[in-house]
């Protein structure tokens, strides 16, 4: 039971990161690898400032802003310096490793003994006997609120223009939109969400580590793909719902693999291998379905039928 709850907690808190990945990879059609660095940045800034005695909310907010700045930087590399999208993200990710170490001052910051937002919320809920579920409820509220905001935003004029930028750049330029601005905006929002996730994960796991973002992009992609495969993609709201579901399923799969993998001789250090394997399987699945003609409805596509 507690294993089950842990999986949902993680699915929710990493779900924020997966929604960020959705925005770049799927909406903007921009394979952004900044994620590994911006996740750590969110965690690092939050942890460093919390330890320095800052208000934990302010610490988290600055962590999010750090992520948004990282996304903006990648966007500028791509749009203003015309560096390849993939390379822009890798460059930012690489330089963030050093920047994050500078911010943190050391490779690992434990948060033991610090009062985090999660601790505050926990004491609040313990009063009404829900202490065991405080993380679950907190992450749930945050994720549902942000998902609703994202759904709303991507149905505004600006949000539609951002979607069109990923769909058909030539068309949206002809409709008077500066696509450079759209790309930078999308990358900033995406990496802000990723850093938000990182900041919360640091509080949840009780530390920030300079290596905690490694492979994050793959986990995010896995969630997006699992979500697209399992749930209908008939409107934006469905797609984001799918990503959140995908994130929970992905975390559950990782947990099961770690727990029962021991019997097969797996070690905790094999986690990245398992992660990559899960993604490969998930990536292969739509093709398998296509090949076997099991395709249900349209190809997963970020699109809309209301």
């Amino acid at each position: 039971m507690s294993l089950f709850i842990n999986a949902i907690e993680q699915g929710l808190v990493y779900g924020l990161m997966a929604l960020g990945v959705l925005i770049t990879f799927r909406v903007l059609d921009f394979p952004d690898l900044t994620v590994d660095g911006s996740f750590t940045m969110g965690a690092g800034i939050t942890a460093a400032l919390t330890v320095a005695g800052w208000n934990p909310y302010l610490a988290l907010l600055l962590g999010i802003l750090g992520g948004m700045a990282a996304g903006t930087f990648t966007g500028i590399l791509s749009t203003k310096l015309n560096i390849l999208n993939l390379l822009s993200g890798i460059l930012t990710m690489t330089l963030l490793y050093s920047v994050n170490l500078r911010i943190m001052g050391r490779p690992n910051i434990p948060l033991l003994g610090q009062t985090t937002i999660l601790d505050q919320f926990n004491s609040l809920l313990s009063g009404v006997g829900l202490g065991d579920y405080s993380n679950l409820i907190f992450f749930g509220i945050v994720l549902i609120a942000l998902k609703a905001l994202i759904d709303l935003f991507f149905n505004t004029e600006l949000g539609l223009a951002l979607r069109a930028t990923g769909d058909n750049e030539q068309m949206i330029v002809a409709q008077g939109v500066n696509t450079d601005v759209m790309k930078v905006l999308g990358l900033a929002i995406s990496n802000g969400l990723v850093a938000f996730s990182g900041g919360l994960v640091a509080q949840y796991s009780g530390f920030a580590d300079v290596g905690m973002g490694i492979g994050m992009i793959i986990a995010g992609l896995a969630s997006v793909i699992v979500g697209e495969t399992l749930l209908p993609t008939k409107s934006f709201m469905w797609v984001t719902t799918g990503v959140v579901t995908g994130s929970i399923i992905y975390r559950a799969a990782i947990m099961l693999a770690l727990r029962y993998g021991y019997n097969l001789g797996f070690k905790a250090s094999d986690l990245k291998l398992i992660t990559a394997l899960i993604v490969i399987v998930a990536l292969a699945t739509p093709h398998v379905r296509e090949k076997l003609n099991f395709k249900i409805g349209e190809k997963a596509n970020l699109s809309e039928t209301e």
Partner: peptide, 20 residues
Amino acid sequence: ASGMTVAQNLVLALNKGHKG
């Protein structure tokens, strides 16, 4: 934009340049 609806495409053309 092929992945977007007819209405969404038209709306993008409706408020040319002013996306709020």
